[in-house]
Design a protein around this nucleic acid. Structure first.
Lengths: 218, 218
DNA sequence: TTTACTTTGTTGCAATTGCAACATTTGTTT
DNA sequence: AAACAAATGTTGCAATTGCAACAAAGTAAA
């Protein structure tokens, strides 16, 4: 994961902050921010910590729009985030930097640290696109079972192991997969009963092979 | 939509192409490219035309991964595109530029046109993230009806009108929403019968208001 | 214009899912 | 340790969906 200030010295980082009028912000663990008092178009960078961007619809369904950890970016420039429609939940103590998107792009500074920062941002955002693609692949699966399997596949690949560790609790996982929690719970039970997986808390063991029939319809 | 060569002169564009060893490629209308003979990490830019990136799973379900028009980018850097798993379909005659991702990022050229290009790319990719977010919002809806309504909402907003024009045929729309085509067809009929929409070919008229009860559970 | 192919529309039916309601377990706070 | 809150597990049931199979309409090619 690329650090947004990769190859930028502390001193130049300060200069950059001044140039871009960046603000830093600290959010306590389990605190919810429902509006970011900032200009129209902003980009936020997670310096440290872990947040979720959530939305709650009229039915009370909570949807996890995004999950962000250190060095990742978010902002209304990158989504249709309008204040108040979404909430930002810090799962642990989190520091973020807020900066004006226009200011980032429109600055004509010839400074090396500025160009370097733009490049770093490009890399980070490219990674984000990739992650979103993975999410889309999951969401396009038509059954809960296939969504779970696709999610496990990606996680297993990321963690290079058949013993995978969920970064979610099950309630959040259901929101992430956009399915009903109890229906997901049932499907997980079926997968267990059929001997495909083992679950111990957030640790899941995949008992099937990559060429298993299970994968055939993914 | 930002042009990747915005504020870059023709001459500098040529220099840029040489610097990044970019190749141009022309694809005839309705031709399918199933593998891009190129280095591992590439970025493609649509210069002119319109393509779809599709995937066909073991069930024969076709999924539209991405839709790209002029000035948009794609590439395995931006998704998990592995050759052969996906196909690229040109809906019309399309020209694309292929370039090496590492080369783009690792070049240390101090040239103004190079930095400008990076900035343009950043803007384009930011827009892509935004579009993917919209897609995710649609896919997280739990019923076909709500997926359709969310899709219509976004389209109506984009086209600033209640008379919207589908960029898809219905078969492709179903793939885009990741639902069964016939089930979608049925749902569209219900929406018509209930007087919420009118359909004439690819032209759809939304007959409900933004504060309609229909929207309440979106 | 006849033929072939693609897209759209329709329907019955079985499978899957969401929903609601509740029990149980786990975690947190005082 | 008691009291409360949150997460997990379970189940019946109705609603929604996917699937299959086919008819009709539209489009392109010979």
């Amino acid at each position: 994961m690329t650090n947004p200030f990769d190859q930028i010295s502390e001193k130049n980082k300060e200069r950059l902050f001044r140039l871009l009028e960046a603000d830093t912000l600290k959010i306590d663990a389990n605190k919810i921010l429902s509006s970011l008092v900032k200009s129209d178009d902003f980009i936020g960078i997670i310096i440290k910590g872990y947040i979720q961007i959530r939305k709650i619809d009229y039915n009370g369904n909570r949807i996890i729009i995004d999950e962000l950890e250190e060095n990742q970016v978010f902002g209304n420039t990158l989504s249709s985030l309008k204040n108040n429609e979404y909430e930002i939940l810090a799962k642990e103590e989190t520091s973020i930097i807020l900066m004006d998107y226009d200011r980032i792009l429109k600055s004509e500074s010839p400074k090396e640290y500025y160009n370097r920062f733009i490049k770093n941002l490009l890399k980070i955002i490219s990674e984000k696109v990739k992650e979103q693609n993975a999410r889309i692949e999951i969401l396009t699966k038509r059954t809960i079972r296939n969504k779970l399997l696709e999610y496990f596949r990606i996680l297993s690949q990321k963690q290079s192991s058949k013993y995978i560790y969920l970064p979610f609790n099950f309630t959040d996982l259901a929101d992430y997969l956009a399915v009903d929690r109890s229906a997901m719970s049932r499907e997980l039970r079926y997968l267990k009963e059929e001997g495909f997986i083992e679950i111990k808390g957030k640790k899941i063991t995949l008992l099937y092979e990559k060429d298993s029939a299970l994968y055939q319809n993914l």
